[in-house]
Simulated assay, not measured.
Amino acid sequence: MRPKDLQVSIVIPTYNEAANIGLLVKKIHKSLKANYEIVIVDDSSPDGTGKIAENLSRGFPLRVIHRKGKLGLGSAVLAGFEVARGEVLGVMDADLQHPPDIVPELVKIVNQGADIAIGSRYVPNGGFQNFASIRKLASKLATLAARPLVRVKDPMSGFFFLRRKVVEDVALEPRGYKILLEILVKGKYKEVVEIPYLFADRKLGQSKLDSKVALSFLQHLVVLYFSKTKRFRKFCIVGLTGIFVNMFFLWLLAEVFGLFYLVAGFIAVELSIINNFTWNNIWTFKEAKDPSHVLIKLGKFNLVSLSALVVNMSVLYSFTQFLHIYYLISNLFGIGAAFLWNYTMNARWTWRETQEG
């Protein structure tokens, strides 16, 4: 079999997609026509998605894996990879938000030599179609937080194709709904190509995005940062020393020197910022080649810290107001998002480092 004729296996995780799955399968068949298979991994959908998929297998090159319980998209993708026959493995959503008409282009890119082809919302001509502003903001924040880990514009895409060798013998530990990021961090590849597409709002069915998905993503992101970058681990340690400095000087200034607690708190915050900057400058980012004067970096560090507060408050408000998540839980998301924002912006702007080698 010539490389250009490598069989394609498209893995489609499903949960309550009865209204979409039939139309999606027909559109994929119209786009590819031959030399492909579809592997549907269904997590016991109450709406009968699995049964509909079984019926579709009589007329299309399609197999169905039935799993007990709602086990998550990431693990569903890996379950599909395990049984897939193709040398080119693809992943797409079942809700028609990923356009089947560009599947041939993604497959062609892999067959022409690329290791991974990604449908991207963040390259020229890519984007969102009829999407709520809050959903766009959440997507952009998540993408920005993930970018220091990889050299890809849209590492959070759920629409991609790759050569089997990229994930062969790679220990993947999927959490939640995003597996491409982990593949990009741990996989074996050289060339990645991104092509634009418009991510459309779903027309049928319900979105699976909720607070559990968001929390799972933050946990996954932190795990990947710890496994990928020594700088992130150092940044976390420095952050812990900042907490100690903050608490100590708040107590000292308020209890010993008798300052009003809010005044003491303001000074303690700035002292903790100076502490964090000092240790990050001489330890965390000591290999950064940014020639800026130390006072300029300190000013940037302060601005990033202020912007992190804005991120925290924005997430708190947005998650509580629009996603109807309990405010204390929303605040946890805000703290996590602010911390990742802090690290990302300091790495990319204060010390001008985009990725650790």
Rank of each mutant, 00 (worst) to 15 (best):
F339K: 00
M313V: 15
F217T: 13
V310Y: 14
F235T: 03
L221K: 00
R231N: 05
R231T: 12
K212I: 14
N312H: 09
V310P: 10
F244Y: 08
F319T: 06
E255N: 11
N276I: 00
L215Y: 12
K289G: 11
I282K: 10
I237H: 12
S307Y: 08
S272C: 04
W341G: 05
L298F: 03
Y327V: 13
I274E: 04
N275W: 11
F322I: 04
G239A: 01
K212W: 12
Y261T: 03
F333D: 13
L240R: 04
E255W: 03
V213L: 09
N246R: 06
F244G: 14
T320D: 09
Y327S: 12
K228S: 09
F266M: 07
L306T: 12
G299E: 08
A288K: 01
Y225K: 03
V294Y: 07
Y317R: 02
K212T: 14
L309V: 13
G334D: 05
Y317Q: 09
I274K: 01
T320E: 09
F217K: 07
W251T: 09
I267E: 13
S307M: 13
V304M: 10
W279H: 07
K228L: 06
K228Y: 05
F244P: 05
F339H: 02
T320V: 01
I243F: 04
A338K: 03
C236I: 14
M313E: 13
F319Y: 09
G265Y: 05
L316W: 15
Y225M: 05
F257I: 00
V310C: 07
G299Y: 06
G299W: 07
A338R: 04
T229A: 11
C236T: 08
N275E: 11
L298D: 03
V223G: 11
L298H: 03
L323P: 09
V223R: 15
L221C: 07
D290H: 09
G258A: 10
A214W: 01
V256F: 14
I329L: 15
V294W: 15
M313T: 14
L262D: 06
V269F: 12
G258T: 03
F285K: 00
V245Y: 02
V315D: 03
A338Y: 02
N280Y: 00
N276Q: 06
F249C: 15
L328T: 09
F244D: 04
L221I: 00
R231Y: 08
F248N: 10
L316D: 06
K228W: 05
I335L: 15
L218R: 11
A214P: 08
L323R: 11
K286I: 01
L306Y: 06
Y326F: 14
G336D: 13
I335N: 14
L215V: 13
A264N: 11
F217R: 02
F277T: 06
L259C: 04
H324L: 06
F257V: 03
C236L: 15
L332Q: 13
A264G: 15
S272I: 02
F266L: 09
A337H: 04
F235M: 00
A288Q: 08
K230V: 08
A288Y: 02
L298V: 01
F322H: 12
L340W: 00
P291L: 06
M313A: 15
L309D: 10
L240V: 15
L253N: 03
V256G: 04
L253E: 05
L221R: 09
L323E: 10
R233E: 10
